[in-house]
């Protein structure tokens, strides 16, 4: 096994790192009688791309929603280093408003922030730039039903970027798309994360695809089935740009697969 490509950090060493951007401490979340997340701790540093990996229905999405303050914790806490940290969220479904054009959908976060419907020309040009970034310049005036599934998710990504987030939370963003589209969009996601045109520096993504997690992330947080507990926090050391067939990536994938199987 390639020791350089794979270093495993225990919970304790992760927590002891200085000032994480987002720190999750002893988190416990429950819905009525079901415990979704149990005693979970890990931290995310600025600039990282972290994947949350686990069997479907294990509480990964709940964890992401908790970070976005959509779900309150029953115990423990989620600490943000900067209270003004801007968090963007992208769902598995595109959730575009069917009566709005692509451009107007992308402008929605701005309208909500301004509290009205008046959007000034700079916002318009910024929305166009976001659409250009996700490759939808030719479809600014199309309605969602005129776009393919992949294009709809591109529009949703542009909308998430429009609120100019520092951190982007992605809940299986391309999970409903075909393999080829998914690969292309993952590459574009990495490109957007790496370029400095936006504030965006940190991404936390939920996935249940091991190759996707390993190809995209700096770290993969492997979780057990419900209630979600930490199995291991895996650092993926492979050099970028990566593809799922990189020889360095294969042992990492194997290792994670063994964890997921054994974690149940």
């Amino acid at each position: 096994m390639n020791a350089l490509a794979l270093t495993t950090r225990s919970e304790a060493t992760t927590l002891s790192r200085p000032e994480p951007l987002i720190a999750i401490e002893n988190l416990r979340i429950r819905f009525d009688n079901v415990v979704a997340i149990e005693n979970l701790s890990f931290a995310v540093a600025r600039g990282e791309f972290v994947s949350l990996l686990g069997p479907s229905g294990c509480g990964k999405s709940t964890l992401l929603k908790a970070i976005a303050r959509l779900v309150p914790p029953a115990q423990g806490r989620i600490a943000l280093r900067d209270p003004n940290l801007r968090i963007g969220f992208m769902f598995q479904k595109p959730l575009l408003l069917p009566w709005r054009t692509t451009l107007d959908n992308v402008l929605l976060p701005v309208e909500i922030q301004l509290g009205g419907s008046v959007v000034d020309p700079t916002d318009h040009s910024r929305a166009r730039r976001m659409l250009e970034m996700v490759g939808l310049s030719d479809f600014t005036n199309a309605y969602p039903h005129q776009l393919s599934g992949g294009m709809q998710q591109r529009a949703a990504l542009a909308r998430a970027l429009m609120s100019d987030p520092d951190v982007l939370l992605l809940d299986e963003p391309f999970g409903a798309l075909d393999e080829l589209t998914r690969e292309v969009l993952n590459e574009e996601l990495i490109r957007i994360w790496q370029n400095n045109d936006t504030r965006l520096h940190t991404i936390i993504m939920v996935t249940h695809s091991i190759p996707e997690a390993v190809t995209l992330s700096d770290r993969v947080i492997v979780l057990t089935d419900r209630p979600a507990r930490l199995v291991e926090d895996v650092r993926v050391g492979c050099p970028r740009p990566r593809t799922p067939d990189d020889p360095e990536a294969v042992p990492v994938m194997k290792r994670i697969r063994a964890m997921v199987r054994g974690g149940r």
Partner: peptide
């Protein structure tokens, strides 16, 4: 409107009035 749409509006920081005006009423 799906619960997910309402979650989207929550993540965007929409008020209840905005949720009605821009999502529920249309």
């Amino acid at each position: 409107a799906d619960a997910e749409y309402r979650e989207l509006f929550q993540t965007l920081g929409a008020s209840r009035a905005q949720e009605f005006r821009k999502l529920r009423i249309p």
